[in-house]
Deep mutational scan, measured.
Amino acid sequence: ELVLALYDYQEKSPREVTMKKGDILTLLNSTNKDWWKVEVNDRQGFVPASYVKKLD
C-alpha cells in the first residue's frame, strides 16, 4: 500500500525516516495509530501517521 507525505518530516532518531511533502512511500505497518512504518529510498522507519495519507 502507498501513502503520500502531506508535510516534510525530519527524522529525530535512527528508527525514523526523513520525507518531503509530496513523497510517495510504501506503507509497511499501520497498526500503531500515531507512528506508521514506511519505506522510502530503500530505508525503513517510522513517520508520524498524521503526516501521511493512504492513496486509493
Rank of each mutant, 00 (worst) to 15 (best):
E1H: 14
E1C: 15
L2N: 06
L2K: 15
V3Q: 02
V3L: 14
V3F: 08
V3M: 07
L4A: 06
L4S: 05
A5C: 12
A5V: 10
A5L: 02
L6E: 04
L6S: 03
L6M: 09
L6Q: 05
Y7G: 05
Y7S: 08
Y7V: 09
Y7Q: 12
Y7E: 10
D8N: 07
D8L: 02
Y9V: 01
Y9G: 01
Y9S: 01
Y9P: 01
Q10Y: 15
K12C: 12
K12Y: 06
K12D: 05
K12V: 08
S13T: 12
P14W: 10
P14Q: 10
P14M: 09
P14V: 11
P14R: 09
P14S: 13
R15I: 13
R15A: 13
E16C: 07
E16Y: 05
V17K: 01
V17H: 03
V17P: 01
T18R: 06
T18L: 03
M19E: 00
M19K: 00
K20F: 10
K20Q: 10
K20T: 09
K21E: 07
K21T: 07
K21N: 05
G22I: 00
G22P: 00
G22V: 00
G22D: 06
D23E: 13
D23T: 08
D23G: 04
I24M: 07
I24F: 07
L25F: 06
L25P: 02
T26V: 15
T26E: 09
T26K: 15
T26G: 10
L27H: 01
L27V: 07
L27C: 09
L27M: 04
L28G: 02
L28Y: 04
L28F: 03
N29H: 08
N29R: 06
S30I: 07
T31L: 10
T31F: 09
T31D: 15
K33A: 12
D34K: 11
D34I: 13
W35M: 06
W35G: 00
W35L: 03
W36D: 01
W36E: 01
W36K: 01
K37I: 14
K37R: 10
V38L: 04
V38S: 00
V38K: 00
E39I: 11
E39R: 11
E39M: 12
E39P: 00
V40Y: 14
V40C: 11
V40M: 15
N41S: 11
D42S: 13
D42R: 10
D42A: 11
D42Y: 10
R43S: 07
R43M: 07
R43A: 06
Q44R: 11
Q44N: 08
G45N: 01
G45M: 05
G45P: 00
F46S: 03
F46L: 08
F46V: 07
V47Q: 01
P48F: 02
P48T: 01
P48M: 03
P48G: 01
P48D: 03
A49D: 03
A49T: 05
A49E: 05
A49Y: 02
A49G: 05
S50E: 11
Y51M: 14
Y51W: 06
Y51K: 09
Y51E: 04
Y51G: 08
Y51C: 12
Y51L: 14
Y51P: 03
Y51T: 10
V52M: 06
K53N: 07
K53D: 08
D56I: 12
D56L: 11
D56M: 13
D56V: 12
D56F: 11
